[in-house]
Design a protein around this nucleic acid. Structure first.
Lengths: 199, 199, 199, 199
DNA sequence: GCCTAAACGAGACGGTACGTCGGGTCTTGAT
DNA sequence: ATCAAGACCCGACGTACCGTCTCGTTTAGGC
C-alpha cells in the first residue's frame, strides 16, 4: 500500500513534513520549534527534511509562500463603499488573524537571512487584488467615487497598517482597528485619489 | 588607573558591551551574533553581560530603546506644508536608514519573545512629536490646512509606511518613497482630517 | 550485450562488488569505507549488495575468507630446515604483507560483531599445512629433527607471532622479523618437540 | 561543596567521563557505545567530552593507555620455574580476562585510525617486566636454567600467544591455554635460550 | 595602610539544536 | 526476476550557542 515514489522525492513525505511544520509553528513559534521535533511529528527523518530544504528558515518560508493559501474570500458587495471596504478588510484580517503565529514565523525566518527574505519577496505571489478592484469599481458606478482608484496603491496602505498593528503594536487586527483604518485612512484616500486620477 | 566603580556595576563595562553589541548587530544581524562574540569584542566576560541583561534579546532591546537615540532633528520650516513634511520625513528616514540593521535586530529580538516585545512597546517612549505638531500648526496658520490635525494619527501612518517599506518590501526609505508617501498619503490625509476635525 | 544472467543472482555483479570492496578496503580501511561507496564504485546498487550479504562486515568477511585466496606457494626445499622454514615463512609473510590492509579490515569486521567473528573462525578453512608438514618431514629424514613435529602446533606459534607483529606492533613482517622468528622461536621449538613426541 | 576547578578542565568531570566510558565499553563494546550515552551516564555534556578528546576513539585510547592500570601483581615464587611461569601467566591472563571487552575496544579504536594506533604504541608504557625478570633469575639460581634469559623476548612470545587466543581464536585465556603455553612454548624456549645466551 | 566585599576576565559546564553522514530497508521503472 | 537508482528511517556524529557557575584577581571604601 506504500505510495512512496521511487527516484523522486516522495510528495507524501513532503506533505507530512509541511503539516508538522505548520502545526508546530502555530503551537510554539519559530524559535522554539526544532527540526528534530518536526521530523518526529512527521514520522520522518531529518535527512528527508534537509534533502528538500536548506534549513528551518527555508522550510518555513516555503511553507508559507507556496503551501498555505492566504485565501481572501470573494467580493462582498454590501451596497456602500464603506461597507465593502470594511468587509474586505475584515476578510483579510480574518485570514491573517487565524495565521498570526505563522506570519510571525515567516518574519522571523526572513530576518534570519537576508537572502531568504529576498526569496520570499520574489515568490510571494502578486496577491489577488481583483476583489478590491471590483469593490472600487462598484463605488465608481454608484457615484461614491468620482474616478478610478488604483487597488494596488490602496492595498499597500492597508498592508502597511496591518503590519504595524501586528508587529509594531502587537495588537490584534480587531473591529476597532478596522473601523478606524477604513474611516480615517482608506475612505479619505480613496476619495482623494478618485478626484484627480487613479494611477 | 582604572575608573571602575567598586560595589557598583561599572558603567564603562556597560558601555563597552553596548558598543560591541551595536557593532556586531550592525555587521552580522541578530541571529548570527553570539553572546560570546559580544563578550570577546567588549573585552568582557559573559557573566558581566548576564549580570545586567537577561539575555541576548534583552540586551538588544535595551540598546535600541535606551542607548541609541533616535534623534529626529528639529522642525524645518520650509515655507510650505509639503516641504515641511518632506523635510520631517527625510529626517526620520535618515535616522532610520543609518540604523536599518539595528532595527531589524530589534524586530528579531521582539519576535523571539513576546514578553520582551511588550517591554519594548512600553519603554519605547512616546516619541517626541512636537516637531510634527509645530509643522502642522504652521500649516494651519498659513491657511494650508483648514483646521488642526492630530500629529499622533499622522505619525502612526508614517510609521506604518516606513515599516512596510523596511520589513515587508525590504527596500530603503529613499527619496522616491518619501515623495510618494507625502504626496499620495500624508498630504491628502492631513487635508481631509483638517476639514472635519482634529482628533 | 550484457553477460548478466537473468533469473539468477548475477555472478558478474557479485564479482564487481567484491572487487570494489577489495579496492576500497585496501585504500581506506574498514571504518572509512561506506557501503554507498562500494555500490557506486561497483556500479551496483545497495540493494544488490544487501541481497547477498548481511552487511558491511559480512561482506568483508566473505571477501577475505572465500574470495581472496591466501595462496601460500608450494614447499621450497632449500636443503636445510632453517632454510625451509625461512622460505615458508617468507611465502606466508609475502602473502600477508600484500594484503595487510585487508587483514586489518577483517579484524575490524570481526570486532564489530562477535557472531561474525565466529563465522570467520568456522569458515576460515583449516589452512593447508601440507607444505609445512612436508618440510618438517624432510627435516626428520635429514636428521635435523629427531622425531615428528605437529605442523599445526608450529603453525599456531607462527600465526601468533605474525599477528602480534601486525596488530600490536604495527610493523611489517620483514626479513628481520622472519629471521628472528625462525632462529629464536621456531627452530628451538621444533627441535624441542621432535625430541619428546610429535603431538 | 563544589569541587570544580575554574580556569582548568575539571578533573572530576574527566574522571566521571572516563568511568562512564569504562562501564559502557565493558557492557556494550566499542562500536555500540555512543558518545551521547557516555555523556548522559557521566552526567556530562558532549561539549565537555570533546573539549578534552578528539573523538570516541581518542577517548578510549586515553582510557586504556593512561587510566586503566594493567596491574600485574608481584612475583609469585612457587619453588619451580614452571610454577612461577604458570603463576605469572595466570596473573596476566587474569588481568586481561577481566578487561577482555576493554582490550577489544582498544583494538577497535586503533583500527579506526592508524594515527591513533601509533599514539597507543608510543604511550603504551614499557610494561613492568621486573616480575618476569625476577622469576627467571630465581630459576637460574635454582639451576633450572643454565644461563640468563631476556624477559622481554619471553614476554613478546607470551603476548603473541595471548593476542592470538583472544583476537584470532576468540577463546578465553583459561587454564588449559596457560598450561599448554607454558609447557609447550615458554619452558622450552626459556631452556633453549638459557643454554646459549640470554639476549 | 590594611581588610572586606563587590565586580570583574576568563572560561568550563550542562543542555539543546544544528546540519551531516552512514547503515540497512524498500519501492519503482527498465532490462 | 534482477538490476540501478535512490528515497527513506534511524541514530550517531562533531559543532555552536545559550545561560549558569566557579574560579582567582582587581579595585574601592571603611577601618
Amino acid at each position: 500500500m506504500g505510495t512512496a515514489n521511487s527516484r523522486r522525492l516522495d510528495p507524501a513525505r513532503e506533505q507530512a513534513i509541511l503539516d508538522a511544520t505548520l502545526e508546530l509553528l502555530t503551537e510554539t513559534g519559530f524559535d522554539r520549534m526544532s527540526v528534530d521535533q518536526i521530523a518526529k511529528r512527521a514520522g520522518a527523518s531529518k535527512a528527508t527534511i534537509y534533502r528538500r530544504w536548506a534549513g528551518k528558515a527555508d522550510l518555513v518560508v516555503d511553507l508559507i509562500c507556496n503551501r498555505v493559501e492566504i485565501d481572501i474570500p470573494p467580493a462582498p458587495d454590501t451596497g456602500s463603499l464603506r461597507g465593502d471596504l470594511l468587509a474586505a478588510l475584515g476578510a483579510i484580517c480574518d485570514a491573517i488573524g487565524r495565521r498570526q503565529q505563522l506570519i510571525i514565523g515567516l518574519v522571523s525566518a526572513m530576518l534570519s537571512s537576508p537572502e531568504l527574505a529576498g526569496a520570499v519577496r520574489d515568490h510571494m505571489p502578486g496577491r489577488d487584488l481583483s476583489g478590491l478592484a471590483y469593490l472600487l469599481g462598484n463605488a465608481v458606478e454608484r457615484g461614491e467615487l468620482t474616478g478610478p482608484v488604483d487597488p494596488r496603491a490602496l492595498f499597500s496602505v492597508v498592508e502597511a497598517l496591518v503590519w504595524r498593528r501586528l508587529i509594531v503594536l502587537g495588537e490584534p487586527v480587531d473591529d476597532a482597528f478596522m473601523a478606524e483604518a477604513v474611516d480615517r485612512v482608506l475612505l479619505p484616500l480613496a476619495k482623494t485619489w478618485s478626484g484627480s486620477m487613479g494611477t
